[in-house]
Nucleic acid binder design. Structure first.
Length: 228
DNA sequence: GCCCAGGTGGGTA
DNA sequence: TACCCACATGGG
C-alpha cells in the first residue's frame, strides 16, 4: 500500500501533469482504447491518422461505414478484422443505449456503465476502464501490462492476481491518500487515478520494457525493492 | 528471423 | 478454474 503510493508519487513528480489520454474527442479515445489492445501505440497512431484521413473517426461516420472499410484504415494496428468488428460493436452499443451520445452516457453511474461496457463484444476490463477513466472522466484505475510489470518488479504484485484484485488494490491505495472534502475529493480522485495510470504507461515505455530497460535514469531506481 | 507491444474471446480438460 | 489458441502489424 505504502510502496504503491511512494512509487506513484515518484512517477508523478518525474512526469508532471500528463493530461491523458492522447485523443481529440471522447469517441476517439474510446476507439483508441480498442485499437491499442495488445499493440504498440505507434501502430495505433497510424491507424488513427488513416481513419481521420478517411473521415471515419466519428460515431456517425463509423455507424455508416462497413467493417471492411474500417479494417482497411486500421490495418497498421494489427488484428484489423477483429478490431473493425469491435469498433462497430461499440458504435452499436452507444446507439442502442445512449442514442449515439457519449455525453448522455457520461451522466450514468460508474458501476452501471462498467457492467454495460463489459457486455460489448471486444471490450474487456482494461478497455472498459480506459474508456471510463479517459473518455468519460470516471474515477477508475486502469490495470495494464505495464502496471503488472512495474509493480511485479517492485515486489508489490506476485503476478497471479486477477484484474479486479489489482484494480481494487490500487484504487484503495490511492484513495487512502486523498484528503479534502465532498465533490472536490471525488474530482481529485478521478484526476489522480487518471494521472497515475498515465505515469505508469510512460514509465513502462521509458524504463520497463522487456528489453533494454533504461534503469539508470528510472525515477523508481531508489526504491529498495526495485529489481530488474 | 525472432520477440515484443497499453487484450479479448472461444475452446478444451 | 486453468490453460491453450487465434487474431496480425510494425519496430528493435
Amino acid at each position: 500500500m505504502l510502496l504503491i503510493n511512494r512509487a506513484l508519487r515518484l512517477l508523478d513528480r518525474h512526469y508532471g501533469d500528463l493530461k491523458w489520454w492522447p485523443g481529440d474527442t471522447p469517441f476517439e479515445i474510446m476507439a483508441g482504447a480498442i485499437l491499442t489492445q495488445n499493440t504498440a501505440w505507434s501502430n495505433v497512431e497510424k491507424a488513427i491518422r488513416s481513419l481521420k484521413a478517411a473521415r471515419l473517426l466519428s460515431l456517425p461516420a463509423m455507424r455508416r461505414a462497413g467493417p471492411a472499410s474500417i479494417a482497411r484504415c486500421i490495418r497498421p494496428s494489427g488484428y484489423y478484422n477483429q478490431k473493425a468488428l469491435k469498433l462497430k460493436a461499440l458504435v452499436g452499443f452507444l446507439d442502442r443505449e445512449y442514442g449515439g451520445s457519449i455525453s448522455r452516457m457520461r451522466a450514468g453511474r460508474t458501476g452501471l456503465l462498467r457492467e454495460q461496457l463489459l457486455t460489448v463484444r471486444g471490450v474487456g476490463p482494461e478497455t472498459a476502464d480506459s474508456m471510463l477513466c479517459y473518455a468519460l472522466d470516471k474515477p477508475v484505475f486502469v490495470v495494464d501490462a505495464y502496471t503488472r510489470r512495474i509493480f511485479g518488479r517492485l515486489g508489490v504484485l506476485r503476478g497471479d492476481e486477477d484484474y479486479e484484485e489489482v484494480r481494487g488494490l490500487f484504487e484503495s491505495a490511492i484513495k487512502s491518500y486523498i484528503i479534502g472534502d465532498g465533490g472536490g475529493q471525488r474530482d481529485g480522485l478521478q484526476k489522480l487515478l487518471n494521472q497515475y495510470h498515465a505515469c505508469i504507461v510512460m514509465a513502462g515505455k521509458d524504463f520497463c520494457r522487456k528489453r533494454s530497460p533504461a534503469c539508470a535514469s528510472c525515477p523508481l531506481r531508489r526504491l529498495k525493492r526495485c529489481r530488474w
